[in-house]
């Protein structure tokens, strides 16, 4: 059985919104340590994954490993019935094909309960090598979203060049070209509070060409986190990570475009 109580529905709503256009259905894997998910898009180009650690829920109970097959369109529709501040309780009783979602309004005067039919999905897992990237960039997720949105008006792919001084995003299309350079920065705003900053750590300069259609899809996770981390290694897939407050993360992997 599974019983997991999440303090704010908004977290789950944002996670589902940031995945549902990439993957139509997949298993939620539940264990003692939390709820995780990994699925590729149909064309084998992008992989989406998330982890919500057990300590992000209060309480969290899962006494054995479970794979719960979910259709994202259904989950998205049902989560629209939850208020952002509602508490969400996710419940699964062993040997059933139903997942229950209970939404409790903050004043406790409204409790809604929805049941979702689970699917039997046989999923294939990719093993992703744990290796230090040649370059790790941390930047404002809003800035990253803006760059992807701006450059898709020029071309279908972006070349990301990361060097010690900063990160350059360039795109070329039939009608012209454009580039945006984000310099490494550590700014402090008027109140002495650290403003979103860009940091670049690297062992090698990296250059990757990537599809802007996919990157724009990934930026749907930007409302979850002020920052995005890009792990890049030459001739390897890009890994983008958005933290989900301090309870987990969403990660996307995107295969690069390869020179013919």
């Amino acid at each position: 059985m599974l019983e997991a109580r999440l303090p704010a529905a908004s977290i789950l709503k944002k996670i589902v919104e940031s995945i549902k256009d990439l993957v139509s259905q997949a298993n939620f894997d539940c264990s003692e340590s939390g709820i995780s998910f990994q699925a590729m898009d149909e064309s084998n180009i992008a992989l989406s994954s998330f982890l919500l650690r057990a300590d992000g829920f209060d309480p969290y109970r899962c006494d054995r490993k479970l794979s719960l097959g979910i259709r994202f369109a259904t989950l998205s529709k049902i989560l629209k019935c939850a208020g952002n501040d509602d508490v969400v309780v996710i419940r699964y009783a062993d040997d059933t094909d139903i997942l229950s979602l209970v939404f409790e309004a903050p004043d406790n005067n409204r409790i809604s309960e929805f049941d979702i039919k689970l699917l039997d999905i046989s999923s294939e897992y990719l093993s992703i090598p744990e290796q230090e990237p040649e370059c790790k960039v941390k930047m404002s997720s809003a800035e990253f979203s803006r760059i992807c949105r701006d450059l898709i008006t020029i071309g279908s792919s972006v070349v990301i060049d990361a060097t010690k001084s900063g990160v350059k995003f360039s795109s070329t299309g039939d009608d012209g070209s454009g580039s945006i350079l984000i310099k490494q920065s550590a700014s402090v705003d008027g109140d002495g509070k650290a403003a979103p900053q860009t940091t670049v750590e690297m062992s090698e300069p990296v250059s990757l060409e990537l599809s802007l259609k996919y990157l724009n899809n990934f930026t749907k996770a930007a409302p979850l986190s002020e920052y995005v981390v890009m792990n890049m290694t030459n001739d390897s897939p890009l890994m983008l990570q958005f933290d989900v407050s301090d309870i987990g993360y969403i990660r996307y992997f995107l295969a690069p475009q390869i020179k013919d």
């Binding site: 590729m40 064309s43 084998n44 180009i45 992008a46 992989l47 294939e124 897992y125 990719l126 093993s127 992703i128 090598p129 792919s157 060409e209 599809s211 390897s236 897939p237 992997f253 295969a255 690069p256 475009q257 390869i258 020179k259 013919d260």
Partner: peptide, 14 residues
């Protein structure tokens, strides 16, 4: 010109 790579050529499936 460049062509889109696929993830399964980078990661092994299990």
């Amino acid at each position: 010109t460049s062509k889109q790579g696929r993830l399964d050529s980078f990661f092994s499936s299990s």
